[in-house]
Amino acid sequence: MKYTPLFLDKIKKGDQESFEKLYNDLFPSLVLFAKKYVDDDNLSEDIVQEIFMKFWNNVSSINIRISIKSYLYMAVRNNAINYLNQKAILTEKLNKHISYEMTSSDEYKILSQDVYHQVHNAIKSLPQKSQEVIRMSMNELSIAEIQEELNLSKNTIKTHKRRAYAMLREKLKSIF
């Protein structure tokens, strides 16, 4: 998904449909991203939920000059660090305090998350069968294993795989 200034304007004007699109697009990636900091599924979802809540409540009045995606990633990261630091204060382990300064590990987390996000999106837009084949081959399963799992002939799988990749290429062309 591409977020144009026009798209942001729509959300600013209170367009729920656009916001829902943004939410559904980024929620899973942001949750996994938060998890890389706090290492807890539920907490990660709560953090992302809270960020979307703040974003939705305040978006009309703030002027975001960086991309929405960068803004949300940064917000999630800082909230996750806030959480870890609060925990450190509560348990009086102040020496465990984490600085908000961006580090190279943050850079890696954000970049890799966005790569996986885009790959995931490209796959999601394929027909169901092709998606399954791709996912399995991404999981490094051999054709034999896929065959067994899906109960399909060897050639059918090869065709699916080829077709899936070809369609993916097309999709990617239109996305990028």
Partner: peptide, 11 residues
Amino acid sequence: IAKELTQLEKI
């Protein structure tokens, strides 16, 4: 990649 995609799928 495989791990991330599987996890993304689950959310």
